[in-house]
Amino acid sequence: MRNAAPLLAVHDLHVDFDTPAGPVAAVSGVSFEIEPNETVALVGESGSGKSVTALAMMRLLGRGATLRGQITCDGRDITGLTEKQMRSVRGRAMTMIFQDPMSSLDPLYSVGNQLVETVRLHNRMSRARAVERATELLDQVGIADPRGRLRAYPHQLSGGQRQRVMIALALACSPRLLIADEPTTALDVTIEAQILELIRGLQREYRMSLLLVTHDMAVVAEMADRVVVMYAGQVVESGAAEQILRQPQHPYTTALFQCIPTPVTDRSAALTAIPGAVPSPHELPPGCRFHPRCAVAFDRCVTGQVPLFPLDGGARHSRCWLSGDAASGRADRTVVTSASVPGPARRRR
């Protein structure tokens, strides 16, 4: 799979937003690829820039956003396309579903109306044939009585059904990449499991790639082939999901996993928390952006930018001086030992 040409490649993506206090960088130099049929999880907390990255790929950032870098879809850079040209990319090449299915559906039109509109947008077909196709799609996403439900309005559906309709609308475009931004966060946990199973089944059937934007490690574990972890607008770690979940390399990823209470967490002990908060894009720290919260930061982390080190022969990457190959393979590794190095970095161990 890794040998196939990527369906989509993001290279050195930067997104700046105009604010009254001057431009701020929401995304700084993000790169990753998505292969055909692959599921990539873009993981991070709020403020990591994961949703902005996804919206940038769709060129759906609002006014006041400046985009730099390349987004290559089928070998074509789409960053320079006009709004009119983008219409042929959106929908067919890739489409996107969002967290809140209620606000993502137009409340004033019936499910059938919105489905038929989308079906006919991408296929020249008669109205009657489009209604047939809409019924098929509702059936495929597991909505009972699909023909009757065509007449339903979004507010008459439950949260889970609305997200199913959103998925049907996405399928109506037959995209090759589906970007799902927190698709189950607004749903109840038992419904979440159903929706994830549905997405996975349809992904296989429609031969879609999936970019899953999420903060939920359980969702990542269930769905992802590869994981890209973001922090404060940068990629801090990426690699195969199994490896990252088993053995995270970046201190942020490690700490993030330890924060999550599990069924076996010791109830009498304090949870491992990451001190402080995600930095505001107005006041990004110098050096490694995670260093003020990092338990193992040392003086080098405070000054220079940290590159994304390739590990395991390029299968994984980590933006940390301390990570595996990066540390062992470098001449200056002596600096890396902790206790001997006094410095401005905070220690919390």
Partner: peptide, 16 residues
């Protein structure tokens, strides 16, 4: 709004 962004995400034109 979200739903207008979603309409655009499906490739709808300016008129729609």
């Amino acid at each position: 709004s979200d739903h207008l962004r979603t309409v655009r995400a499906r490739g709808a034109g300016r008129g729609t």
